[in-house]
């Protein structure tokens, strides 16, 4: 990114190839919409170009990228005020290596469907901190920097969000009792 900042714009292509898949995955889980996630990914890279002169060497590039992604998403939500839709895993183009094998495929698929549905039930802030904390390339110090809070607060928020997700997941998994 330092090279991009200094005018070597072609270097952004390399950063795009390295990071856009993971960034898209993050934005897809955050927004629940493929088209929105693609648009936001594009916007993040646009903003990297626009604000390249503000990039400083002291930060991790991924942390800066997610910071921009968070801002872009907040702007998008402010404009559209649309609630995220749960993603159906059947709609996803899976990496060949990630595709589940025949045994247990149906139950795994159900679990993923329930997981995405539970994720969509969380507040955007909870969903955001959860996704950032499970993206293992970011430390809690970096997440705290992105969320503009203390490291302790970031850990507490991540843990609370994970509990929320678990509760939502099990609520969805439990069949509704018949009305007597």
């Amino acid at each position: 990114m330092l090279a991009v900042r200094d005018g070597e714009l072609n270097a952004l292509g390399e950063l795009f190839e390295r990071h856009h898949g993971r960034l898209y995955g993050f934005l897809l889980k955050l927004t629940g919409d493929r088209s929105t996630a693609e648009d936001l990914t594009q916007t993040v890279f646009q903003r990297m170009l626009k604000y390249r002169h503000t990039y400083r060497d002291q930060g991790n590039f991924a942390a800066w990228m997610y910071h921009l992604a968070r801002r872009c998403t907040a702007d998008h939500v402010r404009r559209s005020s649309a609630a995220p839709r749960p993603i159906d895993p059947a709609d996803l183009n899976l990496h060949a290596d990630d595709a589940p094998h025949a045994a247990g495929q149906a139950s795994v698929h159900d679990d993923h469907r329930l997981l995405y549905a539970a994720l969509a039930l969380l507040d955007r802030d909870d969903r955001e901190v959860l996704l950032l904390s499970r993206f293992q390339e970011l430390s809690f110090a970096e997440i705290a920097g992105i969320l503009e809070c203390s490291v302790g607060a970031a850990k507490v928020r991540a843990h609370r969000a994970l509990r929320e997700l678990r509760d939502a997941f099990f609520r969805l998994q439990r069949p509704t009792p018949p009305v007597s």
Partner: peptide, 9 residues
Amino acid sequence: LDEAPSALP
């Protein structure tokens, strides 16, 4: 969550 399928743009 970690093992959730990753989507391709």
